Computed example of a mutant assay.
Amino acid sequence: MNLLQPVRRPAPRAGRLRPAVTRPRPLRELLLITVLFSIYKLGRLAATGRVGEAFANARRVWHLERAAGLPAETGVQHALLHSGTLVHAANAYYAYVHFPATAAFLLWMYLRRPGYYRWVRWTVVALTSAGLALHLLVPLAPPRMLAVTGLIDTGARYGPAVYGAPQTDTVANQYAAMPSLHIGWALIVAVGLIAATRTRWRWLWLAHPLLTIAVVVGTANHYWLDGIVVAALLTAVLLVLRPPRPAPDPVTIPPRSATVG
């Protein structure tokens, strides 16, 4: 053994443990995600049939935002409507990015950051469960349905459209605007990638939730308050489900001096 060669030893662990490197079994994980998604969809559909309450809550939210001095959502939509290309792109982002981006993020974390995957998965489950509870407790019509807002349904008018007539929609509950899981899941994607990567450019992932906020408000699918509430819920979740501590860099120990016999 060369006594003059530096010895590299891991730094002592402190606080939270470093992330584990084992992955859950893929078939079991796929089954878990499928079951959770099915429960989420069934729960949203169980909240239908409360149309009058949903519109009453929508008027309360609109007037509460104005009383609180929040800017009207119409400003964002009017900016979109200056360009047909821009409004079409916003509609497409709303329709096609939400689920695929979240699914791709979970798959990437599973394959490339298994030590963070369980934390991310349970964060998604906790936030979605809290959102579903609010959907059941507080049905809310989106601003595109509320005439007093002066907003239009950009998806229906310019395409691509996500929703059909609320009375005949058997896939989604359109009276579940509070909170916005579009914004919530986008925030989880950004927070997860910032926590699990070390590159200096990782903070650019915040562009995803910021763009999502602009899209869901500009297309009149959500109020500002829907985003504020989901951000508060995610903050509470992250205070309980803390991210794992990243593995420390190895520490170089100076070589021991050779003794002359």
Score class of each variant (00 low, 15 high):
1 M>P: 11
1 M>T: 14
2 N>Y: 09
8 R>K: 06
9 R>H: 10
10 P>S: 10
11 A>M: 08
13 R>W: 01
15 G>P: 01
17 L>W: 05
19 P>G: 11
25 R>A: 14
28 R>V: 07
31 L>C: 08
32 L>R: 13
34 T>I: 10
35 V>Y: 10
37 F>P: 01
37 F>C: 10
39 I>Y: 06
42 L>T: 07
42 L>F: 06
45 L>P: 05
45 L>Y: 00
46 A>Y: 00
46 A>D: 02
56 A>F: 05
56 A>S: 14
56 A>D: 13
57 N>E: 03
57 N>A: 04
59 R>C: 03
60 R>W: 10
63 H>Q: 12
65 E>T: 07
66 R>N: 05
73 E>V: 09
73 E>K: 03
75 G>Y: 06
75 G>K: 11
77 Q>D: 05
77 Q>R: 10
77 Q>K: 09
80 L>G: 07
81 L>D: 03
81 L>P: 04
84 G>T: 12
86 L>I: 13
89 A>S: 08
92 A>N: 01
95 A>P: 02
96 Y>S: 11
97 V>M: 15
97 V>Y: 07
101 A>D: 05
106 L>A: 05
107 L>F: 12
113 R>A: 03
113 R>E: 00
115 G>M: 02
119 W>P: 00
124 V>H: 14
125 V>S: 03
128 T>G: 06
130 A>W: 02
131 G>H: 11
132 L>C: 01
132 L>K: 00
134 L>Q: 11
135 H>Y: 15
138 V>G: 03
139 P>C: 09
140 L>D: 08
144 R>W: 02
148 V>K: 09
150 G>Y: 12
151 L>P: 10
152 I>V: 14
152 I>D: 13
156 A>G: 11
166 P>W: 00
169 D>N: 13
169 D>R: 00
173 N>G: 10
173 N>T: 06
174 Q>I: 03
180 S>Q: 10
184 G>I: 10
187 L>W: 08
190 A>P: 00
195 A>V: 06
196 A>H: 02
197 T>V: 08
201 W>C: 12
207 A>F: 12
213 I>N: 04
214 A>L: 14
217 V>G: 07
219 T>P: 00
220 A>Y: 02
222 H>S: 12
223 Y>R: 13
229 V>Q: 11
234 L>M: 12
237 V>P: 04
238 L>W: 08
238 L>T: 04
239 L>N: 03
240 V>F: 10
241 L>Y: 09
242 R>N: 08
243 P>W: 00
249 D>H: 00
250 P>G: 05
253 I>L: 13
254 P>M: 01
255 P>M: 02
257 S>Q: 11
261 G>H: 09
